[in-house]
Design a protein around this nucleic acid. Sequence first.
DNA 1: AGGAAACATGAATACTGATTCATGTTTCAT
DNA 2: ATGAAACATGAATCAGTATTCATGTTTCCT
Lengths: 208, 208
Amino acid sequence: MNNPAGNAAMSQRTPFNQPKTARGEATKKAILSAAERVIGARGYNDASIGQITSEAGVAQGTFYIYFKTKEEVFSELVLEMGRLVRHTISDATQAISNRLEAERAGLMAFLEFVQAHPDLYRIVQEAQFVDPDAYLEYYSAFAEGYRGGLREAAQAGQISEGNSDTRAWALMGIARALGEQIVVFGNKTPIPDLVDTAYDLIANGLKP
Amino acid sequence: MNNPAGNAAMSQRTPFNQPKTARGEATKKAILSAAERVIGARGYNDASIGQITSEAGVAQGTFYIYFKTKEEVFSELVLEMGRLVRHTISDATQAISNRLEAERAGLMAFLEFVQAHPDLYRIVQEAQFVDPDAYLEYYSAFAEGYRGGLREAAQAGQISEGNSDTRAWALMGIARALGEQIVVFGNKTPIPDLVDTAYDLIANGLKP
DNA sequence: AGGAAACATGAATACTGATTCATGTTTCAT
DNA sequence: ATGAAACATGAATCAGTATTCATGTTTCCT
């Protein structure tokens, strides 16, 4: 009842100790980047603070200058992934006015991003179990934008009618499954081929 | 180097201590069922052997009569989920000769199953981090059957042509995403509505 | 009935690893 | 130049919990 940092609903909002000098800034970045590699490779529970600080080249106690707990560094990584992915996709699609074309470009950008950042991808997936709030926020932010785009496209006649909420989740499910193929299952199919097949399915369906 | 139970590739294969009496059988079932509830609710790491045995109504040591480690009970649950889901879907689809209709029925059966077994659903998802071998086996077994079905349907002209591997993963991604809506995000959209929207997308695509 | 195998107990063990803390060192505004 | 705030150290603490084990109890075959 006396948690000054806030409750679960806003747990992401207050990094309790922002660095105040360039040196501190650099150290925190080093720890975050080490945490991304170590947690991405070994998973949250098998990753120890000792491994992270050693990978970052700092002492173990230094970790707690910048993060209250092990979970906090994890949350920050999930937030970072959310920002990066949204930025990447929005960059790749904002110049495209046709929704179906945007769909294709967004999928391509997403798959290229996860291929380039496999550790971040795994961390977001694991967030479902380590930090459900962060996980929910990640996908909700995504789905909201997606749903809006689909709704407008339907009204503009660019795509057929249909429940935009459910559609948004289904399309995100496709993107996630293909990302998982690349990162988790090591599928070697070239990304453009994956995108071609998925786009054809999304645009035309399975009917002959 | 001296693991008599075998290597990772066959880690699922040898439950080291099958019960030999009806009493033992019942005890093992009780522990398995308690583990499903406790791990499903709290996640693998926060679930303790003490909680599981207490929920099962047996002493802590009893656990180790039937399972070598905490991870082993988890693996068995993942296997069980695989068997149950495959059985459920195969039951729901085997009488349907039209692939698109089978797709719809399979999706419906899957979503109803996960709604009825939310704990098992979460456990399979967490397997990606707790027992990657079991996770891989779960999805591979699924994908293989799926891919074959799509290939045959394409050859029979029931659906259009397209890479059956990628399609299988995409379609499984849709099913998983909608299952997650129900189990994880608590989405209240009735399953038939979800299925209608998803089926329309799968059959006809987004094109107007 | 009798005894061996199977099953059950729960306290004790053993280990891991997150977090704290007392003590230095560096930065930088004045 | 200097002192207070910021940063850094790494050994010690401390708690949680998976696993073991010595000791009973039950089952069930002959």
